[in-house]
């Protein structure tokens, strides 16, 4: 489960590690195993994938990606072709056509969503990955609370609603790339 919310001057991105079935809780929290790519210092970009972890892994250790200052132009003309090329090279295009992923790129105070067909959408408020029960989250905003309290409340609500386990969660600040882990 992934949620990105716009704060006052940055985007906060929360990734849940509580529903990972293939990993232990500790493994799911390891920075290396998280499906997130953090730009080099100064590039102010966070790239998160809700699926196709393997493509994210290439990106997070590829200086060609991490050194790029992401904006609409680079997302459209660099990142999307990069993802499609890698997906094609590794046979990860669904029915030889669409990339098997949903990505979000956060930088400065903007969020861009990349769909599985490579379509780029400028998200105006908040973002969550494409899980049907969570569409209501599209209306969620950061509000006046601090990001940790805000995300804690959102994920507690989701746990109550769905019965699924979402904690621990990692909250990233897109401006600094710093992570905070919230265990409950």
């Amino acid at each position: 489960m992934y949620i990105a919310l716009k704060g006052k001057d940055t985007v906060y991105l929360a990734i849940s590690s509580g529903s990972e079935l293939s990993m232990t809780e500790g493994e799911a929290l390891l920075e290396e195993n998280l499906p997130i790519c953090i730009g080099d210092k100064g590039t102010k970009s966070l790239i998160c994938f809700s699926s196709q972890t393997m493509i994210t892994q290439f990106m997070k250790y590829d200086p060609e990606v991490t050194s790029k200052h992401m904006n609409y132009d680079t997302v459209l003309n660099f990142l999307v072709p990069y993802i499609m090329d890698k997906s094609s090279e590794y046979g990860q295009l669904v029915n030889n056509q669409e990339a098997n992923f949903y990505a979000v790129v956060c930088y400065d105070n903007e969020i861009y969503e990349i769909g599985s067909n490579g379509e780029v959408t400028h998200v105006d408020s908040s973002w969550s990955h494409n899980g049907e029960p969570y569409f209501a989250l599209k209306k969620v905003t950061m509000g006046q609370e601090d990001p940790i309290t805000r995300f804690r409340n959102i994920f507690r609500g989701l746990e109550r609603e769905t019965g699924r386990k979402f904690f621990p969660i990692s909250i990233y600040n897109a401006k600094t790339g710093n992570r905070k882990i919230v265990k409950s």
Binding site: S22, M23, T24, G26, E27, L30, E32, N33, T53, M54, Q57, Y90, Q92
Partner: peptide
């Protein structure tokens, strides 16, 4: 699918 996971303990 060539996805890599680093193991922590077990």
């Amino acid at each position: 699918d060539y996805e890599v996971e680093l193991s922590l303990q077990y």
